[in-house]
Simulated assay, not measured.
Amino acid sequence: MDFTKKVVIITGAGSGIGAATAQLFAAYNANVIVSDINLDQAGLTARDIKKSGGMATVVQTDVTQFDQVKALVTDTVTTFGQLDVMVNNAGIGGKHQLKTAEHDHDDWHNVIAVNQTGVFYGMQTALQQMMLQGQGAIVNVASLAGLKASGNNLSYSASKYAVVGMTKSAALEYGRKNIRINAVCPGFTHSALLNQLLASSDTMEKNLKRMIPMGRFGEAKEIAEAICWLASDHSKFITGQTITLDGGTSL
């Protein structure tokens, strides 16, 4: 894959899947805008990219704030003249693992704001620019929890089901505009979110791996590879799809 002269924004690029995706796009010669609410973490990702000879720009962005997301896209276009790929990756999990009747309201509002509203803002602002250009690709990071039931995880599950639905609806709307919109749905993948889940119980890692036919967790770079492919010319006839990367868990 080659993204030479392409401009790519990745939200939540300071760690995990976002960082791996930023590094991989840069390895494919893209000009990468590393966006994250944590400026220090974003800086580390950009530093690693530049050490490897890639191109990276750091922009601090809170995806729950529309003005900041709009500025992210506007400033990118002002600087580089275009936006070819938008990866809406920023996401969080709830702090508590509780059933619906006891679900924490702060968790609900925070998770929905980042995972659902943040993706909406990212898609909307990117689409406005891509419409002007007449082309573009958007990849949203959903989850296996957006395809199948996930107990004690209502806000996260609701937000990821929403990402899948928004992806399909927007893809339907913009398919004739040369703009493709797809999503990846990772299963249990090494990340801060997985670490948080594993810390909740001494037996959690063993229990989770028992549900994965491949017997291991995913790696962030494996998800990044699918994201890059969906954004590339190698998938030009694909839109409105969700690619599940879960080691067979959904089976």
Rank of each mutant, 00 (worst) to 15 (best):
K5G: 14
V7A: 06
V7E: 05
I10V: 13
I10G: 07
I10K: 11
A13M: 13
G16R: 10
G18V: 12
A20H: 11
A22Y: 03
A22D: 08
L24P: 05
F25R: 09
A27M: 14
Y28H: 15
A30K: 07
V34F: 05
V34P: 00
S35G: 07
S35R: 00
N38R: 04
G43Y: 05
A46L: 02
D48L: 13
M55A: 14
D62A: 05
T64N: 05
D67I: 10
Q68H: 00
V69K: 01
K70T: 10
K70W: 06
K70C: 11
A71Y: 05
L72Q: 02
D75M: 05
T76D: 00
V77L: 09
T79C: 06
F80K: 00
Q82S: 09
Q82G: 08
D84E: 04
V85W: 02
N88I: 11
N89C: 11
A90R: 09
G91W: 08
Q97H: 13
T100V: 15
A101D: 15
H103L: 15
N110V: 02
V111S: 09
A113K: 01
V114L: 11
N115A: 06
N115F: 06
G118P: 01
G118W: 02
G118H: 02
M123D: 03
M123E: 03
T125W: 00
L127I: 01
Q129C: 04
Q129K: 06
G136I: 07
V139K: 10
S143H: 04
L147K: 13
N152W: 10
S155W: 07
S157G: 11
K160A: 04
V164N: 05
V164L: 05
G165C: 03
N178E: 04
I179D: 03
N182P: 00
V184G: 02
C185V: 08
F188W: 11
A192T: 11
A199S: 12
M204S: 07
L208F: 03
K209T: 11
K209G: 09
G215I: 10
G218L: 07
G218Q: 08
E219P: 02
A224L: 11
E225R: 13
W229G: 02
W229L: 11
K236F: 01
I238Q: 07
G240S: 02
T244A: 06
T244I: 12
L245W: 00
L245C: 01
G248I: 01
T249K: 13
S250Q: 11
